[in-house]
Each structure stands twice: as structure tokens, then as C-alpha cells.
Nucleic acid binder design. Structure first.
Lengths: 114, 114
DNA sequence: TAACTATATAATAATATACTTATATATACA
DNA sequence: TGTATATATAAGTATATTATTATATAGTTA
């Protein structure tokens, strides 16, 4: 298969991941804030396994990375990912989602660890 | 629902459409070349109804537009679409697909109409 | 060590997606 | 007007996706 086909395939795979409201919002948030799973469970009204599965998909393509901090596993944007260049201009055009994190802080549910 | 949620939803819908290799390639091509259905049938090894259905999805969100020219219906990028701003920087990063159109021309299958 | 919290994985079910074939529609042209 | 060509739509099927519940794993702390 041609090089360019491989690139088109990879772009399609990444864009399919962004084509889900939950994951898209996660990425917009992670572009600014590191977050752990239980925070996302609060932000999205969704079960913990569902959140875990979304995060796994993003991790599997290398868009995000995880780091354990004590009890929690924090996810962050992998800005060195080969795909970050592709999605960055996209994320820039999306409305800021930091208010969701501020709401967490207000309700005392933001995890400030270590 | 919040304004920003509506925007995130819409972005996710558009990105899901781009998250398919065939449609992504169609858009990259249509960004430069107008094409009719039968040309896409040649470019992608895929049935005519399948091509039609992909084009319809892109048309339904306003990303592309159609124009009948005699026997053929030509599709083109709708650069005035509210979503074009979102996807343009993306398309720019994809490898050029014009060689697919050049192959059509070489094999005499490019439709040069009106 | 036991109990608790956070996260991941497995199994499953409902729904969505992307093809296919068959058929309808619209234009072109002999 | 009849036939051919281009496209759209309908119906059906296989597969993918996204959620759920149940359970496993790993770290924390009493």
C-alpha cells in the first residue's frame, strides 16, 4: 500500500476517535488540564468503565498518556504525538471547556494530588 | 443545552464523517477538484450506491454541494459551509490526492462536461 | 491483613455504520 | 418513444461502536 494511503488511513482512524462527543471534549480538556478517571466520571454523566474505555482508545493511538500518582491515574495530552499536529488546529477552534474543571473545583471534586 | 455543548456536538458529528477513509479522501479531492459520482466509483473500488451514500452524508451536513450538469451530478466542496473553517486546516495536512484524478485522466475516465 | 478507593477488563446488549443487491428516477440520444 | 447511462433510494446483512453490569487488579490506609 502507498505511503499516502497509510497516512490517510491513520488520519481517518484519529478523526474517528475525535468523532465522539465525549472523547472530543476529553481531548479539549486534556489539552489544558491533566485529569484522572474519576474526574471525568464527574464531568460526564457516565459510568467509570465507559470513561476508562474512551481513555484507552485515545491512549492506544498515542494521543494521550497516563501517569500514576498514588491512588489515581492522571491522563495528559501527549503533545509529542505524531497526531497532535493534526488535531491541534481543530482543538483550537472548539469552545473552551475549562468551565467544567472549574465546576469540579467549586464542588470540591477536583483531585489535587501530590 | 448550552451553546458550547451544541458546538461540541456539531464538531463531533462533522469529525465522525471525516473519520472514514473514503469520505476523508473524497473531501481532500473535492477541496481541489469537482467530481461526479461515477468518477468516485472509479477512484474507490466500491459500488455506486455506496459512493452515493457517502456523498449524501457529506451533503447532509452542508460540507459539499451538488450541481447537475447534463447526465452527471457534480459534487464540489462548499467552502462557505460553517464547517469548512473547522476542517480546512485538517485537509491541508493530508497528502495530496490529485494523483487519483490524474490517473482517471490518463485512463480516459475523467468526465469533462459542458 | 482487611477494608476501601480508583481503575481496568470482560461479557453482553442495543444501536449505528458501511457495505451489498435490487429497484426507482431522471436525463440523453438514436 | 425506447433504450442506455447516471444517480438515488430501499432493504437487508455483517460488523463496529458504545454503553451497561459484573468482576479483577492495584494502591491506600486503618
Amino acid at each position: 500500500m502507498k505511503d499516502t494511503d497509510v497516512m490517510m488511513n491513520q488520519a481517518a482512524v484519529v478523526l474517528k476517535l475525535l468523532g465522539d462527543k465525549t472523547r472530543l471534549t476529553m481531548l479539549k480538556i486534556l489539552d489544558v488540564h491533566d485529569c484522572c478517571v474519576c474526574e471525568f466520571v464527574e464531568v460526564f454523566t457516565m459510568s467509570q468503565p465507559s470513561i476508562s474505555q474512551h481513555l484507552r482508545k485515545l491512549k492506544d493511538v498515542g494521543l494521550i498518556q497516563e501517569e500514576r500518582k498514588g491512588q489515581w491515574i492522571f491522563y495528559s495530552m501527549n503533545k509529542n504525538s505524531v497526531h497532535y499536529t493534526l488535531i491541534r488546529p481543530l482543538l483550537e477552534q472548539l469552545p473552551n471547556q475549562s468551565y467544567k474543571i472549574k465546576e469540579l473545583e467549586r464542588s470540591g471534586k477536583r483531585i489535587l494530588c501530590c
